[in-house]
């Protein structure tokens, strides 16, 4: 498969798509705002316009839609970037960030807190910590399970990705069983919030939930592209990459850490959102080829834009009710993926 479009036209198209998604995400909702009002509100929020009295548009955008949009942007970009990292690490275009156990670990951490704090009535830490507890537990769960998977994949100072893959499958199953146990113990109301968390949502986005992810996301977005040529070499094979002068063991360690932090933070902020990390890099590879120098930034942009558009559908389809965004990404992502699969075979 050779590049279908030049990388330059791809980036032009992706920039346009991302700007469109940003604008729609800020402008549409129960109160639709014209483009000019949206821009004006953004200008005032950034302190570039002098008027003192905040208007309605400014309140809606500043308090509700801007944090939600930035959250969607970060979650989408981070999930897509980590998808590229995992597909590179496993040298398989069908790998998914979930393979190293980070998603199931985060889900386990979240289930522990959701069910523990309500149905089981555990006293979980001081009051000021409560709002962050869910995110922290999800993040720690993702990191913890990934650390165990990585540890199990190591032997004689070498990391075997095949062993990591198997360990990831087994630990994900174990985490699934424990989540099942918590689900069994949960009362009806808790069950509902558990289910919703497992389907992901940007609902209730706030700056407090945004900052940690934004920090991790910026870190991932700066660090991963610096490893683009190393990832290219890794696709040749681990020995081949070593013979080309790359420190492969360190690269693998960094890729796993980067994915654990990135996906852990994304899941902690927005719950489980599938298919972005799998479909976005796969689709872009079909368009511009596997070169990570282009694939990484392009995936970040496309992931961000697609997640914003999916969130828009989640908000608008059944308004004023809201669908979990994981349902939208899976509903659109899975058939599209099957289409690529069938088309690729002919």
């Amino acid at each position: 498969m050779i590049a279908v479009i030049s990388s330059r036209s791809l980036f032009v198209a992706l920039t346009a798509l991302l700007l469109l998604a940003l604008w729609l995400s800020l402008a549409l909702g129960p109160v639709s705002l014209p483009l000019l009002d949206t821009l004006e509100a953004l200008l005032r929020l950034s302190g570039l316009s002098g008027e003192q009295v905040p208007g309605q548009a400014e309140l809606i955008i500043g308090q509700i839609r801007l944090p939600r949009t930035l959250l969607g942007l970060s979650v989408g970009a981070v999930l897509a970037l980590c998808g590229v990292a995992m597909q590179g690490l496993f040298r398989n275009p069908l790998a998914d960030p979930g393979l190293v156990g980070v998603s199931s670990g985060a889900a386990l951490g979240a289930a522990l807190v959701i069910v523990g704090s309500t149905s089981l009535g555990w006293g979980l830490g001081p009051l000021w910590l409560q709002p962050y507890l869910l995110s922290l537990a999800a993040f720690a769960g993702g990191l913890g399970v990934t650390a165990v998977v990585y540890r199990l994949g190591r032997r004689d100072g070498q990391t075997s990705v095949a062993a990591m893959l198997l360990a990831g499958v087994a630990l994900s199953a174990l985490a699934g069983a424990l989540i099942g146990l918590f689900t069994y113990l949960a009362d009806d109301a808790t069950l509902r919030s558990l289910t919703f968390w497992n389907m992901g949502s940007l609902n209730g986005a706030s700056y407090a939930r945004l900052w940690p992810l934004l920090l991790v996301g910026v870190g991932v977005a700066i660090w991963l592209p610096r490893r683009a040529t190393a990832l290219n070499a890794l696709l040749l094979g681990e020995s081949e990459a070593r013979h080309l002068g790359f420190e492969v063991e360190r690269l693998k360690r960094e890729l796993v850490l980067c994915t654990a932090l990135g996906v852990g933070a994304a899941v902690a902020a927005a719950g489980l959102i599938g298919f972005i990390g799998l479909v976005v890099p796969h689709l872009l590879r079909l368009l511009v080829g596997p070169d990570h120098r282009i694939l990484l930034p392009a995936s970040a942009m496309a992931g961000a834009a697609l997640l914003l558009l999916a969130d828009l559908l989640a908000r608008l389809l059944l308004a004023p009710a809201e669908l979990p965004i994981g349902i939208i990404t899976a509903l659109l992502g899975a058939p599209f993926f099957l289409y690529l699969l069938v088309k690729g075979r002919h």
């Binding site: 040298r91 398989n92 275009p93 696709l235 040749l236 094979g237 013979h243 590879r285 080829g289 596997p290």
Partner: peptide, 13 residues
């Protein structure tokens, strides 16, 4: 080093 066989499975030119 040229290995005996290679496992590159990505569509590089």
């Amino acid at each position: 080093v040229l290995p005996q066989s290679s496992t590159l499975g990505f569509a590089f030119r």
